[in-house]
Design a binder for these strands. Structure first.
Length: 493
RNA sequence: GGCGGGUUGGCGGAGAGGUUACGCAGCGGAUUGCAAAUCCGUGUAGACCGGUUCGAUUCCGGUACCCGCCUCCA
């Protein structure tokens, strides 16, 4: 059996992974708050843990891995959007508007993450379906002295859990000294965090022993992971920004609610995404969603490839040159993909098993490609989530070629076009006519006119080339670039 | 201020205490008005200062710079 080693944030070491139950390996990953389209940063944990999920399924069997990723569908940003729609005159109730907003956002999320080649988790629980379990857990925490109710709020008593701060390497006193903590009047200690808070009539709420209210952010993951995966499970993942306070608070709640259990054995955190060297943020104007990229014609697999080319524990920079390089590599691989019973390459598996070294795994794929081991390349790429065979039918990966043999002046010439995607007969004929015009000008040695035409063609995404063979036959080729727009052809006719 | 991560050749990006990473770009050739594609060949590194060692880019210490979290933005 393949030995998997993973860096555990809890111990800050790379450890051999030993599942609690090899027949049911259990992983929980913090999912999105469903108030809007997923931005590019949201995609990183999805892709990283998708590769881990695929590796675990490969090693332990597809039916022996349970992957839970939640939807946070109770949140102030969701409420704000629903209230905005209500204020805009929508006659429906707030609850209906919230439900509609979260439903449509979940639909977008699924579509976008599917496009990135991410498998759907085994279970995708919604926080609002587990309110009862959250209330039960909070009641238990109050009973055991780890939480207290005050003014309709319930707070977790941070000082009651001595392990608090261990995951993120801080102490309660350090953090208070940091002076960035909110000091609310109902808190015993500034670091205490909210388990339950009251809702007024304008906010969604559920009846509870502390009045009508809604859960705090952290309790949902503790309640849902316990309900779906049990007291203790194998892997808990998410972005490094969640390490504190979200994961720290999850640990405190779960360990105090179930003191006999271990909760998550291995904690994994992916580093952040950057865009052209900077943090993605609305104020810098470099903020965009996965859908924005897909709509610009960047295939999901290309996004996935760029993400996996950097190890998950390092900041990953999204740049345009990287996506261009990725599309070329994928096209090369797709063009040679072969159906076979081949199993993934051992070195590729070993790279992934060594703390998800996707970058090294891609290096091995390059070597399989250059070594001509195409069946093995196909099988190995699939382990990383690239279905090269299926991509053969993707428009962006379909080579386009048409060659017309024509009588041309005093020799036979071939006029052809090359590109990626599908183009109509009329479009290609028009391209070939342009190409012939260019070749005529060249034949007549009208170089400046020829160059002018070539430049104009380049502006609409056509690159002309000519080559001459030894017998005096010459052939012209029009390269159809990614930004070619058939509609612009008219102007050059 | 507290905690954590990073700094590798033109660019991206890994492993390993000593032996070619790999990809892209570049350069030379097959071949050319210019240019593209393909093939063959090829150069370039380890932020800085110390230490350990026969030997460090790889281990240890320090410095500089960059980034993240501490604000319910992954």
């Amino acid at each position: 059996m393949t030995e998997i080693r993973l860096t555990n944030t809890k111990t800050r070491k790379k450890e051999v992974f030993t599942p609690i139950d090899p027949d049911n390996v259990r992983m929980y990953v913090c999912g999105p708050t469903v108030y809007d389209r997923a931005h590019l940063g949201n995609a990183r944990p999805v892709i990283v843990f998708d590769v881990l999920y695929r590796l675990l399924r490969h090693v332990y069997g597809a039916d022996h891995v349970t992957y839970v990723r939640n939807f946070t569908d109770v949140d102030d940003k969701i409420n704000a959007e629903a209230q905005r729609r209500k204020a805009a005159g929508d006659p429906r109730s707030l609850e209906e508007l919230i439900r509609e907003r979260t439903e449509e956002t979940i639909g977008w999320y699924h579509a976008d993450m599917d496009a990135l080649g991410a498998l759907r988790p085994t279970v995708e629980p919604r926080a609002t379906d587990f309110i009862g379990q959250m209330i039960g857990m909070i009641e238990g925490l109050i009973a055991s002295g780890h939480a207290y109710a005050k003014d309709g709020h319930v707070l977790f008593r941070v000082r009651s859990y001595q392990g608090y701060g261990k995951l993120s390497g801080r102490t309660v006193d350090d953090m208070i000294a940091g002076a960035r903590v909110e000091i609310a009047p109902f808190k015993e200690d500034p670091m205490d965090f909210v388990l339950w808070k009251p809702s007024d009539a304008d906010l969604p709420g559920w009846e509870s022993p502390w009045g009508r209210g809604r859960p705090g952010w952290h309790i949902e993951c503790s309640a849902m992971s316990h309900e779906l995966l049990g007291d203790s499970f194998d892997i808990h993942g998410g972005g490094i920004d969640l390490q504190f306070p979200h994961h720290e608070n999850e640990i405190a709640q779960s360990k105090c609610a179930h003191p006999e259990a271990e909760f998550a054995k291995v904690w994994m955190h992916n580093e952040m995404l950057q865009v052209e060297g900077k943090k993605m943020s609305k104020s810098l104007g470099n903020f965009f969603t996965v859908r924005d990229l897909l709509d610009k014609g960047i295939p999901g697999e290309v996004i996935r490839f760029v993400f996996l080319s950097t190890h998950y524990s390092k900041p990953m920079d999204w740049t345009l040159p990287k996506s261009r390089e990725a599309i070329r590599t994928l096209r090369d691989w797709i063009s040679v993909a072969e159906q076979s019973a081949q199993v993934p390459n051992a070195e590729v598996i070993a790279a992934l098993a060594d703390d998800l070294n996707t970058s090294l795994a891609i290096t091995k794929l390059h070597e399989l490609f250059s070594g001509g081991s195409y069946a093995e390349l196909t099988a190995s790429a699939k382990l990383l989530g690239f279905d090269l065979l299926a991509l053969k039918s993707a428009s962006w990966a379909t080579p386009f070629e048409r060659r017309d043999l024509v009588e041309w002046l005093d020799y036979n010439a071939t006029v052809g076009s090359l590109g990626w995607g599908h183009f109509s007969e009329d479009t290609v004929t028009a391209i070939h006519n342009l190409l012939r015009r260019w070749m005529t000008l060249r034949w007549e040695a009208k170089w400046s006119q020829a160059d002018d035409l070539k430049r104009s063609a380049e502006l609409i995404g056509l690159r002309f080339e000519v080559s001459k063979s030894k017998d005096g036959t010459s052939s012209g080729t029009a390269h159809i670039e990614g930004d070619f727009d058939p509609a612009k052809l008219e102007a050059l006719k």
